[in-house]
Simulated scan of single mutants.
Amino acid sequence: MYPNTRMRRLRNGKIGNLIRETSLGLDDLIYPMFVDETAESTVEVPSMEGVLRLPLSEVVNEARNVADLGISSLILFGIPSNKDEKGSSACGDEDIVQQATRAIKEELGDDMVVITDVCMCEYTSHGHCGIIDNETHDVINDETLPLLGEIAASHARAGADMVAPSGMMDGMVGAIRQSLDQENFSDVPIMSYAAKYCSAFYGPFRDAADSCYCFGDRSTYQMDPANSDEALREVELDIMEGADIVMVKPALPYLDIIYRIKQEFGMPTAAYNVSGEYSMLKAAAQQGWLDEKKVMYESLMSIKRAGADMIITYFAKEMAQLLNE
């Protein structure tokens, strides 16, 4: 009770560091990387300052730059040269993500954990995350599952350390686990986008990954932002099907979901600090309205404090530079 209890006593200098409850380190960061089969040189994404679409020839250099900063994990997204209704360019052994994965692993080996996004939206001509019924324009869940299994297995053959299915198809984790196990990749873990919301914060990503949809929206397979109990059901089902890590996406508007999932399941939990979260802070910093480094640090710390064990973030390189300082 005041004045005997003075909370300010422990907020001074290095004493404050001793009692800090949450820490943010290099091992918490996962760097998203876009590899573009159509690109001849590196291209900056207009809506995401500092985020690049890389030609295959630059992927290893970028991975090495990331490793030199002390970041030991990245997640790969591919932009193919050809798209069709079935996303056929997603699962070939010589397709773009598979080539990029092999190149990085051959150069960096165990110094870089390569995670691959397993979805179809970047590869389909319609931009949706699965096979489409051409009459109703609905995504056909069960016909999509074998294709996701094929994609995941092709990534594992290329050397991926982990696969990350993001399509929010019911049963996708089980289908991928079965496919991996059948090809003797039982040790390859699955990081499931288990609670992925139908969010307006994904807009800049669709510029980066060229994955805009041609009709409708994704509300039939991504989650309603109003729901939180549903997120726990989604996560529980993915765990039962074999997910090794569960993810919440987006992060900042859903800190309560991260907290609830971590408290309920105690599972390794990832959070995706998505493109819209990144771009709005960048835009505010450009206008001089916010201190970019401070809001970056505060935002990522809040995600960690909510319960995330790892954070996919476009701020990864800048955060690493700040931590290294």
Rank of each mutant, 00 (worst) to 15 (best):
E143M: 15
I140G: 09
S154D: 04
G171A: 07
D28I: 13
E135L: 12
D224A: 08
A67S: 11
N134T: 09
S299Q: 01
Y2R: 06
M296H: 01
S57P: 05
A195W: 09
D93G: 13
A164H: 09
L54S: 12
P3G: 01
I30N: 11
F265R: 14
I303Y: 00
V59L: 04
T101F: 06
S41I: 15
V43T: 13
N4D: 03
I245P: 10
L18R: 09
A160K: 14
S299F: 02
V113A: 12
T42G: 11
E21K: 13
L76E: 00
N65S: 11
N134H: 03
D170L: 08
I140A: 02
D309V: 05
Q286S: 09
A284H: 02
E230N: 12
E277C: 03
E37H: 03
I239F: 09
I258N: 01
I261N: 05
V113D: 10
P253C: 14
D36W: 06
L232M: 11
M310V: 09
A164M: 10
I311M: 07
E58A: 15
D210V: 15
D210I: 14
I79D: 02
G16Y: 11
K282P: 04
L148P: 03
V35N: 08
D181S: 09
L255Q: 11
E230V: 10
E292H: 02
D110K: 15
M7E: 02
L232N: 08
V114L: 04
E58F: 09
D217G: 07
R233N: 06
M48I: 13
L147S: 09
R260Q: 13
Y202Q: 10
L255W: 00
E234M: 13
R6W: 07
V295I: 15
A63Q: 02
P80G: 07
V295E: 03
M33R: 04
A271N: 02
M33D: 06
T116N: 10
L69M: 11
R157N: 04
G50M: 00
A270M: 08
N17T: 12
E107M: 06
D138N: 12
A251S: 10
A231H: 07
L18E: 12
E183K: 08
L252C: 14
I30Y: 05
R9Y: 08
D117G: 04
G167M: 02
I71D: 10
R6L: 12
A103L: 11
A285S: 03
S125V: 14
M169C: 03
C214E: 04
P55H: 00
Y297C: 03
P225W: 10
L147I: 15
